[in-house]
């Protein structure tokens, strides 16, 4: 059974000028020990999906349809008091900027023990021991000394490790990592990715890795979901998506990443930009930018179907049965 199972999730934002649908009919699931990469441009809805799982959607945004199951339990519309018990205990969250996700006024030791004591029945001494074990696990040198240090005394990479330790406090079964390496340097990035991978392998933690960096995805993820304008465009194993993308958007995205030693005069790119949510074209949202778009693409929304010979599925009319596309 999948650790988390999202089906037909819709997230909407009512505004004065009408309802914006930010995420539409999104379905995906993550198994234990699996890292699912979620990629897309800013504004595509990848972070919203992560926030919806932990019940942290910013009002007025809310889930209007679909379900989220965590270990077989429906957590879509839990009350805040119920959600608090799950968040931090069963789901760990790692945000982009480690400086804003730690409280600057408390030592990291206090933040760790407080989280542990909130969710687990332990004495203060046991909690401290557990916190130090966690700091060792995420690779912080001299954890006993660092226990009483404040967040500002750590470097960016070390701070992100503390955030990961916080997320791991109660041995969650699911970690949502929202751009965990974006604020870090490449050399530190590699250290953090290695850590996330180890946790998935050794502890069987299911991980949702939200990022726009395909390099990070290539290295860490097992499967990848590509989101465009709030809808799933393509999903499949990491190698199939990177080596053999099927959806025209995924193809364009992969081509536009500069590679060392490529020596191109100009980089291939997708003309135009992602539509605004209040201005989404009818049919497939990608059709105005797609070189292969046909009548049906402008009329009807494509469903996810098997595409290509590497086992992924894509929401594109090219792969539809019959000759509607021709």
């Amino acid at each position: 059974m999948a650790v988390v199972d999202i089906s037909n999730l819709c997230i909407e934002f009512p505004t004065r000028r009408g309802v914006l649908s930010a995420v539409e009919n999104l379905s995906l699931s993550i198994e234990a020990g699996e890292i699912l990469g979620v990629v897309g441009e800013s504004g595509a809805g990848k972070s919203l999906t992560g926030n919806a799982i932990v019940g942290l959607l910013e009002p007025p945004g809310h889930v209007t349809a679909g379900t989220i199951f965590l270990n077989g339990r429906d957590i879509t519309h839990l009350r805040e008091s119920e959600m608090r018990k799950i968040r931090g205990a069963q789901i760990g969250v790692i945000f982009q900027d480690p400086l804003t996700s730690l409280d600057p006024l408390y030592t990291i030791g206090r933040q760790l023990t407080q989280t542990i004591l909130t969710h687990q029945d332990m004495t203060r001494a046991e909690a401290k021991k557990r916190a130090i074990d966690l700091l060792i696990e995420v690779g912080i040198p001299a954890p006993e000394k660092r226990f009483d240090a404040y967040p500002h005394e750590f470097s960016g990479g070390m701070r992100q490790r503390v955030v990961i330790a916080l997320a791991l406090c109660c041995e969650p079964c699911l970690i949502i990592a929202d751009e965990p390496t974006t604020a870090l340097d490449v050399s530190v990035q590699a250290q953090i990715i290695t850590l996330l991978k180890r946790l998935a392998r050794e502890k069987g933690v299911a991980t949702m890795l939200v990022t726009h960096d395909m390099g990070v995805i290539a290295e860490a993820a097992d499967r990848v979901a590509v989101i465009y304008s709030g809808r799933l465009a393509e999903i499949g194993t990491v190698r199939s998506i990177i080596d053999n993308p099927q959806h025209p958007y995924t193809k364009g995205l992969m081509d536009s990443i500069p590679q060392i030693g490529q020596n191109l005069k100009s980089l291939p790119n997708i003309v135009g930009s992602m539509p605004r949510l209040d201005d989404r074209p009818s049919g497939c949202a990608f059709n105005p930018r797609c070189s292969k778009s046909k009548d049906i693409c402008r009329r009807e929304l494509p469903n996810m179907i098997a595409a290509g010979d590497t086992g992924q599925s894509a929401a594109c009319w090219i792969y539809a049965e019959g000759d509607e596309y021709a």
Partner: peptide, 8 residues
């Protein structure tokens, strides 16, 4: 060496 490689 630390550049993430798409080829994996």
């Amino acid at each position: 060496e630390t550049i993430p490689d798409l080829k994996g």
